[in-house]
Amino acid sequence: MGVKKTKIIKSIKVDADKCMGCRACEVACSAFHATPKYSSNNPARSRIRVIRHPLEDIYVPVYAGEYTPSECMGRNTYKIEGKEYDECAFCRASCPSRDLFKEPDSGLPLKCDMCESVPELDEPLCVKWCMVDALIYEEREVEVDEDEEDVKMEEMEAGIESLVDKYGLQKVADILARKSQKS
């Protein structure tokens, strides 16, 4: 109890006011994630995309986040400083409603991995290639209690309860038994 440990949180600060829409970030990302590394270029494979409407002065670099199998029920628009943004402009999901963040051949979802690799890079490549500093890499150490990292039992219980409600106790128990045998 009470043991502290540190964790590094990696983040990219996006300053959309500085972006001028050159898409160098997309170029760098797709080259870095090619196999072999740097062998091919294709912004459609990039895990960062610039949502770009020059005439409306809209430039939003967005990183690929989680995959979602279904699109939103409704899509809102936001008006910020007189400019109207589609909600999707800020959304990181690889989602059926758009062609961003999917492998163009297979349709498999893509997700930003902060260019984690061996040997390690100083910063994600998109940040390095963004010479107008619209993308700034930040690392911060946070201290967390070891036990805070542990699972919150009540939350897990609630989750299992809903599974039991939906599928019945027997099925859930069977799956748990099978899982525990495997591990």
Binding site: A31, Y38, S39, S40, N41, N42, A44, D99, P104
Partner: peptide
């Protein structure tokens, strides 16, 4: 609109 790859011959060197 294009979503295909452009390849380079010697990737590390080109990079």
């Amino acid at each position: 609109r294009g979503t295909k790859d452009i390849n380079v011959a010697r990737p590390e060197e080109y990079n």
